[in-house]
């Protein structure tokens, strides 16, 4: 596989971004403080954005960085700070080793199956609907497809977002008699 000619710079970029993603992922898992987890998440997002660019999806990379890393993670941090839950969490798996083991096994199985899928070639014969990727600039093609074939879903996303915002506002409205956060985090059960 390596024998096929790959332009070296692309390979370096790929490897670097994979490393960033890996660090970010593992960091997120093992972070004792939620804030660190959020930062590691940003790191991963950035790695993924780089891969998007490599694959010719510049617009998405931009959106990823601006919307995702910018807004979503900031929201996370905002909530963490608001609730004051930024306290040390014991991430040891002392309590429920059984469940962790099961989780491990489950994930391993999924990975195995995905590898098989990833390495196999899948042709289902369904013809392309959205249009050629290479016909013009990425954003142009993407915009043409979104605003023509997928116009209805696009409108729906607008409605979705409105609902989400309204929901969030109602959910987090201050209700009377709210329980104050307890002095220390309860021991992991």
């Amino acid at each position: 596989m390596i024998a096929t000619v790959i332009s070296v710079p692309q390979l370096i970029v790929f490897i670097v971004s994979v490393v960033i993603i890996a660090i970010g992922g593992v960091g997120l898992l093992s972070a004792r403080y939620p804030v660190h987890a959020a930062l590691f998440l940003v790191m991963t997002l950035f790695g993924v954005a780089v891969l998007f660019i490599e694959e010719g999806a510049e617009f998405l990379a931009a959106v990823q960085v601006v919307v995702y890393a910018g807004a979503v993670v900031v929201l996370f941090l905002f909530v963490i700070m608001l609730l004051g839950v930024d306290r040390e969490e014991i991430t040891s798996f002392a309590g429920d080793t059984v469940r962790v083991a099961l989780a491990g096994v489950g994930v391993a199985l999924i990975l195995a199956e995905l590898f098989i899928v990833a390495t196999g070639a899948w042709v289902t014969g369904a013809h392309a609907v959205a249009g050629k990727l290479s016909a013009g600039s990425n954003i142009g093609v993407l915009a043409r497809s979104v605003f023509t074939t997928y116009l209805l879903p696009f409108e729906l996303t607008a409605a979705l977002l409105v609902i989400a915002v309204v929901g969030a506002v109602i959910l987090s409205r201050r209700m009377s008699g709210v329980a104050q956060p307890r002095a220390h985090e309860s021991r992991e059960v």
């Binding site: 999806a57 392309a128 959205a130 993407l142 074939t149 997928y150």
Partner: peptide, 10 residues
């Protein structure tokens, strides 16, 4: 070579 993928990501 199908932009549908990117639309989905969107």
């Amino acid at each position: 070579n199908d932009v549908g993928g990117q639309v989905a990501v969107f």
